[in-house]
Nucleic acid binder design. Sequence first.
DNA 1: GTGAAAGCGCTAACAA
DNA 2: TTGTTAGCGCTTTCAC
Lengths: 338, 338
Amino acid sequence: LHKVTINVVARHAGVSKKTVSRVLNNESNVTESTRRKVQAAIDELGYVPSVQARALARNQSFLIGLIYDNPNASYVADIQKGALKVCRQRGYHLVIHPTDHESSTLLEELEELLSTSRLDGLILTPPFSDRRDILQLLQQRHLPFARVAPTQTASGSVDVISDDFDAAKKMTEYLISLGHQRIGFIKGHPDHPVSEQRLAGYRAALQAADIEFKADYVRQGYFNFRSGEEAARKLLSLTPLPTAIFASNDFMAAGVLKVASQKGLSVPHELSVAGFDDSPISRHIWPSITTVKQPVEAMAEQATDMLLAVIGRTGDAAPITHFVDSLVIRNSTAPAKA
Amino acid sequence: LHKVTINVVARHAGVSKKTVSRVLNNESNVTESTRRKVQAAIDELGYVPSVQARALARNQSFLIGLIYDNPNASYVADIQKGALKVCRQRGYHLVIHPTDHESSTLLEELEELLSTSRLDGLILTPPFSDRRDILQLLQQRHLPFARVAPTQTASGSVDVISDDFDAAKKMTEYLISLGHQRIGFIKGHPDHPVSEQRLAGYRAALQAADIEFKADYVRQGYFNFRSGEEAARKLLSLTPLPTAIFASNDFMAAGVLKVASQKGLSVPHELSVAGFDDSPISRHIWPSITTVKQPVEAMAEQATDMLLAVIGRTGDAAPITHFVDSLVIRNSTAPAKA
DNA sequence: GTGAAAGCGCTAACAA
DNA sequence: TTGTTAGCGCTTTCAC
């Protein structure tokens, strides 16, 4: 079995290789009859163009990078899935790049990734979406990029965002509607800008309901289980006790559940608990956790789509797409006792 | 800033591009002085060879595929991490390919992946590691592959395995050592060959302790939370009640915890529960789950390393590497009540 | 040990 | 609308 190249196809179809190339790239100036003839040859021979050769000739790599640092494996999996879906359709490969956002050599590491891989574009996820130093690096290299869930605008970027402020506000309003007045809050990691937005949503809901904001009821967390546990210990030693705790993600909410259980506080009867992210754990724990669901996969898909549009100078899609979060009510929340 | 190619380096070093190429590829027949001269030019100019050009000339893609279908996101993350580590070091890219192992078009999908991506090699994870049809496809295409945790041998493959039989046996022995005699078991997904091994380990431990095996105490599960829940409902309506339940993974163990909680059975005092995998949920749930830890990342790393050795016809490493699982004792297991 | 020439499979620029 | 001629940046002959 001989290797099928563009030359073989050209000969088979009785045209020049350039014409085959035109058909491959869907260029406009080809007669319909020629196109069909070429297509027939392609199908018949089972020809698949070599990405490698294409990459060299066009000085592209057909590689898209995905940068993340997220302990939430299912979030990462969703992001990957969304990005992959689009990449596959369009003949790109996804280069995943898990990395440590606190690393002091992050920028150098990124520069190396860019120069060795020659990526055609990059997808940034939190907390990288808002890292000025990274954005600057990409801009001066003229490397197209898309950002998932940034909080600040940046020139020349395409973004997908969801309204975490609004989601946190809605969740807090929901708790208030259940009769809760003393609602504890566990903040997210300070390096993640969404943390502030979620807190702001919480505060806005309190204010709208004329409930006094008390700093005691807010503790710093770091998006992991242990920090949720520690924050919960503090919150659950307050007097009067909060009747509800809203954690900025599900891992921390799981930590609250543990502490409540150890203290003999029954959830949701004596304490309501809410989380954020709709991670698998929110379903796999008992009581299951009321939380906020983001359309993460769809967001990644859209981000990738917009990025490829920029790379291919295709349609000029709107530079920002909005997605909406939704509340998922489960078993960890109930009306406050009278 | 001009683009730095091999020609620029050659001119700068006063040698031919072929010599630069030799240095790049660590070929033997280059004088030490020439090598140093060339290396100096490379460093000075900050030259990074183009993977694309290399790929075309050598008819390689520098792409390694990773096939998986696992709902356990953290398992996938670990596998990716291990594989990536090696790939990066050696200048390869990892093409991740999550897919549905039950899809009827799986084989075609794979064939398409192979022909469009021109992968240099493939890493198979369970349940694909034992899929005869896939192995056959790879063999006839002469595509090198490495398998993670296969249970059956296959010619021309490099494998990394861990002894799930032994680990399950040890866990069961541990439960027996706590005084448990009536130990329920929840089987894993029937499509995963490890499921049988874990069951066999359980049986072997019972037999060694002269405890009668009772089919009633074994229920089919599917590695997900819900199936664990359902199996637990069945097991916990038996008389006499089992005093311990060993689930073939942590998700199912979490399901057992839920049912126990709903039935008012206190874990671990009235019921001991054990899982498998050391997934994050085993730590994030209360009581935390006693489980089995596999060195997944290290296994993936080793598999990738061996695969690249095969591709590069480098050293002939042993075709099989063994890893050992370890018990992680947490809070879901305790001595049986007298 | 080193270099010149040819070519990997495709696309870009130009002609026809 | 189609074909011709040069490359893309490397590696591979095979000379020297």
